[in-house]
Computed example of a mutant assay.
Amino acid sequence: MNIPTLENHFVKLSPLSLSNYKNLIDIAQEENLVQYSPSKIDTEEDLLAYVQTAIDGITQKTTIPFIVYDKSKKAYAGSTRFGLINWKNKVLHIGWTWIGNEFQGSGLNTQMKFLMLQYAFETLNFNKVEFRVDKRNVRSRKAVEKLGAKLEGILRKDTLMLDGFKRSTCCYGILKEEWTVIKSSTFSSFI
């Protein structure tokens, strides 16, 4: 599968690989960076395993992982990916997103999501993009809602966290027919 580079004036999303993931080691060690995720990335070994899992999904055509580069700060900021790609039904998830503390609240995440939504709907011609967010993660839930995603339901106690807690997951979605309106309203300054 050919993985594209997605970019605009603010951010560059390049294919995540075993040759570039080390640019994220310091960020991955930030405290509470992925506290609402069932993934562990805070050691170099854990980060390598996380990246290897993402790369393995490429060969199965179920993931497209990216490394995030903030052009204004001239620094690597984190990682994101398309996952659970269902080519037959034209549905995919955007998630596995984490960016360092210094990049949070800067608008970088919104820029990333615009590029990813645009690619999913306009290039891949998918019918739906979904987001899954820990019910407790109010900040991420608000960010996804700000993008125009609609809450479709909550999966109760569906994911086992590293500390043994069973989290509930909020399921959000954007349909292809909603994209044009969302693009012109939410992302009007990006186009």
Rank of each mutant, 00 (worst) to 15 (best):
F10M: 12
D46Q: 15
G105A: 06
F66Q: 02
I182Y: 05
G95C: 03
V11Q: 02
T180S: 14
N23R: 09
Y36H: 13
H93S: 15
M1R: 13
G57I: 01
K71T: 11
F121Q: 00
S19K: 12
F165R: 05
T5N: 04
I27L: 03
L147V: 04
A120Y: 01
M161H: 02
L84C: 13
C171Y: 10
I182V: 11
G153W: 10
Y119E: 09
F131W: 11
L115F: 04
N23T: 07
K12W: 03
W98N: 01
F187V: 05
S14V: 06
F10D: 13
E30A: 01
E7L: 09
N127Q: 12
S189M: 07
N89I: 03
Q118S: 15
L117D: 07
T180L: 13
N109H: 07
D134E: 06
D163F: 04
I154D: 06
M112G: 04
T59N: 15
Q104L: 10
L6K: 04
M116K: 08
T62F: 07
E30C: 01
L124Y: 09
T80Y: 02
S189R: 12
L47R: 07
S184M: 12
M161E: 03
K12P: 09
G148R: 05
A149R: 06
T59S: 14
N89V: 02
I25Y: 08
K157E: 15
K61T: 14
G148S: 02
G107V: 10
Q52L: 09
F114W: 04
C171A: 11
R81S: 15
R167C: 11
P4L: 02
F121N: 00
L92K: 04
I67N: 02
K73D: 14
Y50C: 08
L160A: 09
Q118V: 06
S106W: 00
E45T: 12
R156Y: 12
K146Q: 11
T80S: 05
F114Y: 15
L147D: 06
Q29S: 14
L24K: 05
N8I: 02
I174R: 00
D46N: 15
T186E: 12
C170R: 07
I191D: 08
P15V: 08
K88T: 15
Y36S: 05
N89S: 10
I3P: 02
E30V: 01
W98T: 00
I55D: 10
T80Q: 00
Y76G: 02
R156Q: 10
A75H: 13
F114I: 00
I58S: 03
T110M: 12
K113I: 09
F165E: 12
M1C: 10
C170M: 10
A120I: 00
L13K: 03
D163P: 03
F165K: 08
I154K: 02
K88V: 13
L124G: 00
I94Y: 01
E177H: 13
